[in-house]
Design a protein around this nucleic acid. Structure first.
Length: 116
RNA sequence: UGAGUCGGCCAGGCGGUCGCGUCGGGCGGGUCAUCAGACCCGACCCGCCGAGGAACGUCCGGGCUCCGUAGGGCAGGGUGGUGGGUAACACCCACCCGGGGUGACCCGCGGGACAGUGCCACAGAAAGCAGACCGCCGGGCCUGGGCAACCAGACCCGGUAAGGGUGAAACGGUGGUGCAAGAGACCACCAGCGCAUCGGGUGACCGGUGCGGCUAGGUAAACCCCACCUGGAGCAAGGCCAGACAGGGAGCGUUUGAGGGCUGCCCGCCCGAGCUCCCGGGUAGGCCGCUGGAGGCGUGCGGCAACGCACGUCGUAGAUGGAUGGCCGCCACCGGUGCGCAAGCACCGGGACAGAACCCGGCGUAUCGGCCGACUCAUCCG
């Protein structure tokens, strides 16, 4: 599971990440990454709206995504603000399927030097 | 053995690995302190515990918190057989009444329709106070037949609710007397209603006797009437700490009282110097509340039961972008396919409904399947 120091818990972090971060999307997830200058460890937040399903399904999707991100935070730069947003297609998806989408979206969002 | 009724329980298990949250301990750090130590922080280590029977819907009832007190009347809202249980209830138990079932049992939005008003579709002649379509009977007149008595038919006037037909429902039922034909017009019994009275029951109510006039529809989840209950808002309650900003304008008012006392109106009581609107600006962090409670389990006693009392015993989630999990394996369970005479083996698939957010008691709804107990009916054997 995701260590506590990597968890995003402030509203402002969510807002800046979603509004000003680079976006990478796949069929089931969208990833926002805002690169910050601070030396603090990167933080990851999750957004799973009601469109995904009931409380049980949303919890399951969030836990799977959190479990997958736990092994990926080490590769991400310090100070980054990352928000993983689940799309309705993520409901009921197995972990390996989510992992493919997640990696694809992360690759786009973290590509350096392609800012327009 | 088959069909069925009621009640209770469970919500796959074990392991590996990577992790999360609360709490406790260790270790490390910080602040204070002469020391002893106290408090705070931690991304490290160890340990305990960590979703449900519905956690759900938020439909009722409470606890708790705040509104100074929670007063009277009206309105509004709720409840609706009786007795009990309970903190309380719209819940639960027992009983009564009505309906269904061979039965175990089940169902009931179960006060009042002689206070008033409204409504009763379709069908039917007529639907609330009556009502003649066919029929039956009497009279008149005409036509036809007959010597005549009379018979048949058309029309008109009247009598009749027994028969036909319509309907969920047609102003009691059966038998008789009676009559032109009929009718509670009268009689007997039965059903129903009212009054009186006796017996049983705490009571709803049940049973009996006598008399009366003989008959009076349903609907209150239509308005309404009656009895009883009901102050409001809700943990985003409420409190503490930290932090930010920038004020300006208009109106009303300070004992001749603005505004407020959190659904509306009136009265009473009370607080009271600010309140309302517009433009502009700022914040939206942390802590407490926060889990030991009408608590679970066991035994005994009281009670038909719901439940109560006594004793013993257990310690059982507290998140806040929101922990209780992700991945993998094995064993059981269910379904399918193939092989096999069979026991079985192999492969594939399946495991529902659903996630605490202040806490309880209920109700309602969702749910793959499994287990246990009591009882009923039918059949077979003894």
């Amino acid at each position: 599971m995701l260590p506590a120091r990597h968890r995003m818990r402030r509203r402002a972090d969510f807002t800046t990440s979603v509004q000003s971060g680079r976006r990478g999307s796949a069929r089931r997830v969208v990833v926002h990454v805002a690169v910050g200058a601070s030396a603090e460890p990167c933080t990851v937040g999750f957004v799973v709206s009601r469109a995904v399903g009931g409380a049980v399904d949303r919890n399951l999707v969030k836990r799977r995504l959190r479990g997958l991100m736990a092994s990926r935070v080490v590769a991400l730069p310090d100070g980054a603000r990352i928000v993983v947003r689940a799309l309705p297609a993520a409901a009921g998806a197995k972990a390996d399927v989510l992992a493919r989408d997640l990696d694809q979206a992360l690759r786009v969002a973290t590509r350096v030097g392609t800012t327009r």
